[in-house]
Amino acid sequence: MTVSIKEIARICGVSIGTVDRALNNRPGINPKTKEKILQVAKEKNYRPDYRAQSLVKGKTKTIGVVLFDLQNRSFALLMNAIESELRKSGYSLHLALTDKDKEKEIESINYLIDRKVDGIILFSVNQGNGFNKFLQSFDVPIVTIFNHVSDQWHHIGVKEREAMLDAVKHTIKKGYKRFVFICPPLSLLGKVNIYTQHERLKGFIDGLSEYNLLDNHLIIEEKDYLEKVAEFKFLRNEKTAILCTCDFHALEVMKFLKEHQVNIPAEVGIMGFDNIDVLKYVEPQLTTVEYPIEEIGISAVQSLVNKLENGIFPSVPLLNYRIIPGESI
């Protein structure tokens, strides 16, 4: 059993308030007294009673995170960054996974609120006025990441539209004449929040429009996207670029084309989006768009902690990206 603050005060011959100042690094205490208190606390294996502190302060020092799943390697990196940054700031983590289900997301948020989290980091599949009113019913600061919900919420995101626009320009400059855009989540447009994917679609259209190439493209939004790729007529005299909104889809397409003896990149170029770490094992090396996934997690935590401890959200502009040239384009 660990020693209490009251017991440390008795051993050191000081008041409980003096012990509290020493343990929490507050001013108004003699340095030698502070040193003595900290030494006793260490020897007696003192550990703070967070449950008691939460009752007194009305804070639990916990943050809730609502995420789709951890199957995407990028999400795993995101969660590592969030957990590490929370720990540095003295907070712990409650994670809720929704499997991209709107009702599960509502249940997850209620679950976190019931457990008195101090704030929530939300990667949402919900949207609209009803959802906004639902979030507003809680007196808890919320930071949205990736999928924008509304301007009412502090948001951390990436220049998605610009990133895909530059991806299209990159393929055009490499001599590709026809373009395929693969994004299965687009089949859910209007049903769930797919803000990031929709922004990437806009960037794809922007790029083709800028070069007057809108007549030479195909958008594939079906889950069985490989079947649609198989139906597409690749022309040897008109190189085709396939742009995917995540590296996983790009790798699946690459595998499929290899199996059908399609030359990459001479006949068909492939471009991904994420720059997941397993790409270093892939041949030909995948050309992709990299965005700062860990920085998104860190910025979300820092913004939320600043709001909790200083009362304001800092201004955070949309984060940047970069094209990672490979051998597939």
Results as ranks from 00 to 15, higher is better:
residue 123 F to S: 12
residue 91 Y to Q: 00
residue 141 P to L: 11
residue 149 V to A: 01
residue 104 K to N: 09
residue 88 K to T: 08
residue 222 E to F: 09
residue 233 K to Y: 05
residue 16 I to D: 03
residue 174 K to V: 03
residue 55 L to I: 10
residue 312 I to Y: 10
residue 111 Y to N: 05
residue 287 T to M: 11
residue 128 G to N: 15
residue 18 T to I: 07
residue 184 P to M: 06
residue 264 I to D: 11
residue 294 E to N: 13
residue 33 T to P: 03
residue 255 K to W: 13
residue 326 G to T: 08
residue 151 D to T: 15
residue 58 G to H: 02
residue 148 H to L: 15
residue 262 V to C: 09
residue 260 H to D: 13
residue 316 V to D: 05
residue 147 N to Y: 07
residue 251 L to Q: 05
residue 209 S to R: 12
residue 290 E to T: 13
residue 13 G to K: 10
residue 98 T to W: 05
residue 95 L to Y: 07
residue 174 K to I: 13
residue 17 G to C: 10
residue 327 E to W: 06
residue 193 N to M: 10
residue 201 L to H: 03
residue 83 E to I: 07
residue 194 I to F: 08
residue 45 N to R: 08
residue 160 E to A: 10
residue 205 I to G: 07
residue 308 L to N: 03
residue 315 S to Y: 12
residue 136 Q to E: 15
residue 238 E to Y: 10
residue 167 A to H: 01
residue 191 K to R: 08
residue 46 Y to H: 12
residue 156 I to G: 04
residue 30 N to G: 14
residue 233 K to F: 05
residue 269 G to L: 07
residue 220 I to Q: 11
residue 289 V to W: 07
residue 25 N to C: 15
residue 228 K to G: 04
residue 187 S to R: 12
residue 6 K to E: 03
residue 318 L to F: 11
residue 118 D to Q: 15
residue 313 F to I: 00
residue 14 V to G: 02
residue 324 I to E: 04
residue 128 G to R: 11
residue 253 V to Q: 03
residue 145 I to V: 13
residue 50 Y to G: 02
residue 226 L to C: 00
residue 68 F to T: 01
residue 150 S to L: 13
residue 102 K to D: 10
residue 161 R to Y: 01
residue 198 H to I: 00
residue 163 A to L: 02
residue 131 F to Y: 15
residue 178 R to C: 01
residue 92 S to R: 14
residue 105 E to T: 00
residue 166 D to C: 07
residue 98 T to V: 11
residue 163 A to M: 00
residue 193 N to T: 06
residue 7 E to C: 04
residue 317 P to M: 05
residue 47 R to I: 06
residue 34 K to E: 03
residue 201 L to M: 02
residue 271 M to C: 14
residue 266 A to R: 12
residue 254 M to D: 08
residue 287 T to I: 12
residue 162 E to S: 07
residue 192 V to W: 02
residue 166 D to V: 00
